[in-house]
């Protein structure tokens, strides 16, 4: 397999995952705008979403008033912003197209039809009334693509590059959401309305508000939430689960190609730590610093994979 093909599969899945995550973040912003008295005001919520999406600077560079409409348009359909949902799908689709024969037709169909519908969509078409529908659609499309990948792609090198891309992106995304709100998870945070609302927001942004209740069977508690999103293997968007998936795919690649040992070592070391540490200790030693390091490590892991497998 060409290094470029591996890179394209990696980025294809990574960008599809990103499209979904941006849609989730947008949904959080939308909901908070509907919630009365949400503390610091809507503006702050939208701002923190731009921070979590890693594109506050890009938005500010546009020098547009930070209205919900402008931010929505920026996050969803902006053609110049490389992390808008539209751009993510376009990049994913272009990567897919350049390695079309490495995909199954189900995967290609899922991506291509998503892009065809999105390509000409104008921001006016997804005003507040149609926004939830649109965001649902993005999530469904992402799920469809993921399902096509898992259900139809041969378990050879290509599948594993695709998985690594998706789960590195997901890990990065969960870490950024936690980073955005970690202050409200620290020990001693009281259960004020304001905080309860923030906790809900965190869980919603990873679609875990209902599963939290099933899993813990109790009210929101900050260290439960942190444990859920960081350390629980059962939670498919947790840092530990994502790391486990990356590790598994890298292990398969090492077996198939006798390469990738460096990436595997990084993933293994990280997984070992996440599997052993207790949430109380993590919170005590500094959640912010931990998350910062996690985000840096994720980038390093991606670089190691690109390097070892000649992504060009």
């Amino acid at each position: 397999m060409l290094g470029r093909t591996a890179a394209s599969l990696f980025w294809m899945s990574r960008y599809m995952e990103r499209a979904e995550n941006i849609a989730r973040l947008t949904e959080v912003g939308y909901r908070s705008a509907l919630t009365p008295n949400s503390g610091g005001g809507h503006r702050e919520d939208w701002r923190s979403i731009l921070v979590a999406a890693g594109c506050l600077d890009a938005f500010e560079a546009k020098k547009r008033p930070a209205t919900p409409e402008a931010i929505r348009a920026f996050l969803l359909l902006d053609r110049d912003h490389p992390s808008s949902v539209r751009s993510c799908v376009e990049i994913a689709r272009n990567n897919a197209r350049s390695v079309r024969t490495a995909l199954t037709s189900e995967m290609w169909e899922a991506l291509n039809s998503t892009w065809n519908e999105l390509a000409d969509l104008q921001p006016e078409r997804i005003g507040p009334a149609r926004l939830p529908e649109f965001l649902d659609w993005v999530r469904q499309r992402s799920a469809m693509f993921r399902g096509a990948t898992i259900g139809t792609l041969l378990r050879t090198e290509g599948f594993h590059f695709s998985q690594i891309g998706a789960f590195l992106e997901r890990a990065d995304n969960t870490a950024r959401i936690l980073k955005m709100k970690y202050a409200v998870l620290l020990p001693g945070t009281g259960s004020s309305d304001r905080n309860a609302y923030q906790w809900e927001t965190i869980l919603r942004s990873v679609s875990a508000h209902r599963s939290y209740r099933h899993f813990f069977q109790e009210a929101y508690r900050p260290n439960n939430i942190a444990e859920f999103l960081i350390l629980r293997q059962e939670m498919p968007r947790s840092l530990r689960y994502c790391t486990d998936q990356v590790q598994a795919s890298l292990a398969s690649l090492v077996e198939l190609t006798e390469r990738g040992q460096m990436g595997l070592a990084l993933a293994g070391a990280r997984y070992g730590k996440l599997a052993q540490v207790q949430i109380d200790a993590l919170l005590r030693d500094g959640l912010g610093a931990f998350l910062d390091q996690f985000i840096i490590d994720t980038a390093e892991m991606a670089e190691a994979v690109a390097d070892e497998f000649h992504f060009v």
Partner: peptide, 13 residues
């Protein structure tokens, strides 16, 4: 182009 021959870059080198 390397060592007087043509190569493609694959994931295995």
């Amino acid at each position: 182009v390397e060592d007087g021959a043509l190569f493609m870059r694959t994931i295995r080198g």
